[in-house]
Amino acid sequence: GAPPLPPYSAGGREVTMKKGDILTLLNSTNKDWWKVEVNDRQGFVPAAYVKKLDSGTGKELVLALYDYQEK
């Protein structure tokens, strides 16, 4: 199953993602919540729920390892 959710501390809205989604990583300075862009929406997802990909394009991409439903 998915890892436990860290307390929400990102101070911005969250976004929903599905397992297998490829998201653009915008900011990973917060260790628990990373800012991503998905379907032209920006928001935060739990860092433990995604994995960085080596895209080779200069853009940082992450793979959704679990479904996440915004609150």
Rank of each mutant, 00 (worst) to 15 (best):
D32M: 09
P3C: 06
N27D: 15
V62Y: 07
L23V: 05
T16D: 09
D54H: 11
E70I: 09
A48T: 10
D32I: 07
S9E: 10
K51L: 11
K71Y: 15
G58Y: 11
L65V: 07
Y68S: 02
Y66T: 04
R13Y: 14
Q69A: 12
K59I: 14
K59R: 13
P4L: 08
S9G: 13
Q42K: 10
R13C: 13
G12Y: 09
L61D: 04
K35P: 01
T57K: 12
D40V: 06
K19D: 02
T24H: 07
K51T: 12
V36Y: 00
V45H: 00
K31P: 14
L25P: 00
A2L: 13
Y68F: 15
E70P: 15
A2C: 07
V45M: 01
L63V: 14
D32R: 05
V38D: 09
A64F: 01
A2S: 10
L25N: 01
L65T: 03
A47C: 05
M17S: 00
Y49H: 05
N30K: 04
E37W: 05
M17A: 02
S28L: 04
A47G: 04
D32Y: 15
P3S: 04
P7D: 11
A2N: 09
K71N: 14
K51V: 13
G20Y: 03
E60P: 13
K59Y: 11
V36Q: 00
L25Y: 02
L26T: 04
K51S: 09
K71E: 14
G20P: 00
E14G: 12
E37N: 04
G11C: 14
Q69G: 14
P6E: 02
N27G: 06
T24M: 10
S9Q: 12
G56R: 10
G58W: 07
A2V: 13
P6V: 02
G20V: 00
I22L: 08
D67R: 02
E70D: 11
L65A: 03
G43N: 02
W33S: 01
V15K: 02
K31M: 11
K19F: 04
Q69D: 14
L26H: 04
K31A: 12
D40M: 13
K52F: 09
Y68R: 02
V38K: 15
W33N: 00
E70F: 09
P4E: 08
W33C: 04
Y68L: 03
S9I: 10
L26F: 04
N30P: 04
A48C: 07
K19L: 05
G1Q: 11
V50C: 11
A10T: 13
T29I: 08
K31N: 12
D40P: 03
Y66E: 04
N27F: 05
K35V: 14
A47F: 02
A10M: 15
Y8P: 08
G20N: 05
V50W: 00
K35W: 15
R13I: 12
I22G: 00
D67H: 04
W34P: 00
S28I: 05
D67P: 05
P4F: 06
E37S: 10
K59C: 09
T16A: 11
L61G: 03
P46A: 02
L26G: 01
P46D: 01
L23E: 00
T16I: 06
G58P: 09
L25I: 06
R13S: 11
E14H: 15
V50T: 04
W34M: 03
T29R: 09
